[in-house]
Write a protein that binds this DNA or RNA. Structure first.
Lengths: 112, 112
DNA sequence: CAGACATAGTACGACAGTCGTAGTACGACA
DNA sequence: TGTCGTACTACGACTGTCGTACTATGTCTG
């Protein structure tokens, strides 16, 4: 199995997180599992990478955090949820456009 | 025009350089121009990035350097040329395989 | 013939994102 | 009672890229 090097994905971790948050607010552990599932187990984001991305993205104004209970009855520990902002949606769309160009560029240097 | 962020290309600069060296030995300035041309002016590698890549890749054993004259008559300043090694060719092929997987993974998180 | 531009680099320090390692804390389950 | 899954936080190290600056030669143009 080919290992995806972090330097390749670097710069798209934020995009992956935003993709998930585009659907609904979520929290670290869940996002991590979703990234793994969506990528068919081909990419597993490191915890430290994920949580430091949250900090950065909240500073950037791409996401907002809030705390909520684990279940609707108010039982269990509280979790930190993240919600995408308008700026985050805009950023996500820009990254999607950028990706199309980047992909085409890299492809020119690849031989199959 | 969409700017390609360096974090995306990061990890593929080496691959682009190797792609060019797969054909024939070359030197910094020429490689830089070729990357620009091949990418249709969409990507211009920074000088410092390029030359520090050479140092790293020579240490890795992916390339070898030698000096040669600018023209065959022995006139002009000498230039530092780089040649891809067997290990470099192997590495290049691996990066190409990796790219296919990476591309598929990222694509799942992109909406067009 | 002076100055700009292309060529062909080197040096050095800063920065940002990722990663390794480690630790905390709770609940469920066996 | 202990392990596993959940849900994080802290901290320092590393690596590749970038900004800035500097050197030096050759060529073209007004």
């Amino acid at each position: 199995m080919v290992e995806i090097s972090s330097d390749v994905i670097r710069g798209y971790n934020d995009t992956m997180i935003l993709y998930i948050l585009m659907k609904e607010p979520s929290y670290g552990y869940e996002i991590s599992k979703q990234i793994r599932t969506i990528s068919d187990d081909k990419y597993v984001i490191k915890e430290t990478t994920l949580y430091s991305a949250f900090t950065r993205m909240e500073k950037n104004g791409h996401i907002e955090s809030f705390t909520a209970d684990q279940d609707p009855n108010g039982n269990g520990k509280k979790r930190t949820y993240y919600r995408i902002t308008e700026a985050g949606k805009q950023y996500y769309r820009e990254k999607c456009e950028e990706w199309d160009i980047t992909k085409d560029v890299v492809e020119k240097f690849i031989e199959h």
